[in-house]
Write a protein that binds this DNA or RNA. Structure first.
Lengths: 133, 133
DNA sequence: TATTGTTATACTCTATAACTATA
DNA sequence: TATAGTTATAGAGTATAACAATA
């Protein structure tokens, strides 16, 4: 577990530095990363980022003010607001990820086959299994 | 890289929840995790946690007030203060790590040999190589 | 002169509680 | 009644700049 902690700290530090170069905090960067996989409601964002729903309001406010995301009303439930990346937001998060030089260099130290093995093991260990009801 | 991000979020969320059960923030928990590997000066702590040195003052202040760490003057450099875990601090960080049930369960989904493979790959990818001068 | 640690400041993150509007 | 999102608030994290003590 020690090594997991060190490895993930290295990844997280690389991400934080890269996000800071675009004048984004780690939380703002993480939010864009999640939205890169598709639009999400405020409550889904809060759950995914493991923070209280009330925090998302401020984080999304700041991202929206910079034109990186936009809030849209849900067609099916008038209480819900869906948050989506703008074209600018997509460009920024791709830039951040492309500049994670330490992580990219680290992964390039492995062969294609080794990377596949790493991904398979991470997926089995960290992807939530169906809840045992 | 997508999978790395998801794995990190799972591990980090598990750690944050576990630290919160001991009334510690993620940054305080991370500080204890680093100190578990041995005492460190304020500046080394700041570098390891990827934050400014001025932040460490407040974080260590709060940990010290709760009796989890102590500051000691360095014998070799009177400017330096070394921070060390107290017995209470050791107990608390071990409790936190022992309660990371999602992570522990995830790792137990792998065989001993698979875990060894995962650790080897993580070490090669994320352990900093000697600087190419 | 440079470095270690602290303080002061301003902004951001975070959880809790109370609120509105929907369901 | 319960849920989605917001607001208000207070404590904690964060970077910047300026400072004292020491190297």
């Amino acid at each position: 577990m020690e090594l997991l902690s060190v490895s993930l700290a290295a990844y997280y530090g690389d991400f934080t530095v890269s996000a800071a170069r675009e004048n984004l905090t780690a939380s703002q960067g993480k939010t864009l990363t999640v939205l890169r996989r598709g639009a999400a409601s405020m409550s889904v964002l809060a759950t995914t980022l493991t923070c209280d729903a009330s925090n998302m309001t401020g984080i999304v406010d700041r991202l929206e003010k910079r034109g990186l995301v936009r809030r849209e009303p849900s067609p099916s439930d008038r209480r819900v607001k869906n948050v989506a990346l703008t074209a600018d937001g997509e460009r920024v998060i791709d830039t951040i990820r492309g500049r994670m030089h330490h992580t990219i260099a680290g992964l390039e130290r492995l062969s294609t086959q080794e990377r596949d093995t790493l991904y398979t093991l991470l997926e089995r260990a960290f992807t939530a299994p169906p809840e045992a009801a």
